[in-house]
């Protein structure tokens, strides 16, 4: 309880990323595309002499990024020693969780189910607790395998 979460909008929905995992929030201005990479890998971006892999979270959910506006900001996280920038529609706020539930009682739909770890109740309302590893892995692993 009482932990900090970064609240973001992904595909027009509110999601929460554990604050302790977020190294910083950055503006992504230039992305070097990676041909042949899965669709949710937007490319590489440089941050303070580091190359980050930019994950378009909307594409990771199976949404079409072209249909979602973005202000070009991303949450920088680290997973297994690699740096990722999770590109979202909008970064809303950092909030303290009032309550965290680690299960979803109802399905959130095919797009959200595999990235949702549960809910976070925050002063601004509830948010889906997003699984960073699932976002990085992208949409349904079986489908990206086939590519």
């Amino acid at each position: 309880m009482g932990e900090l979460y970064l609240l973001v909008q992904i595909g027009g929905r509110r999601a929460a990323i554990p604050g302790a995992r977020v190294q910083s929030v950055v503006e992504i201005d230039q992305i070097v595309p990676v041909p042949l990479a899965p669709r949710h890998v937007a490319g590489l971006a440089a941050l303070r002499s580091r190359a980050l892999t930019v994950i378009d979270t909307r594409a990771a959910l199976g949404l079409d990024p072209a249909l979602c506006d973005t202000e070009g900001r991303a949450a920088v996280v680290e997973l297994d020693g690699h740096g990722y920038a999770l590109l979202v529609d909008r970064v809303e706020d950092v909030a303290q969780a009032d309550a965290v539930s680690d299960r979803c009682d109802a399905t959130l739909g095919p797009a959200w189910d595999h990235v949702a770890l549960g809910f976070v109740e925050t002063p601004v309302g509830p948010a889906v607790l997003a699984d960073i590893a699932a976002l990085v892995a992208g949409q349904a692993p079986s489908r990206s395998r086939a590519a």
Partner: peptide
């Protein structure tokens, strides 16, 4: 090194 999703290409 590259991140696994990129490496997988």
């Amino acid at each position: 090194p590259l991140a696994p999703p990129v490496m997988a290409t």
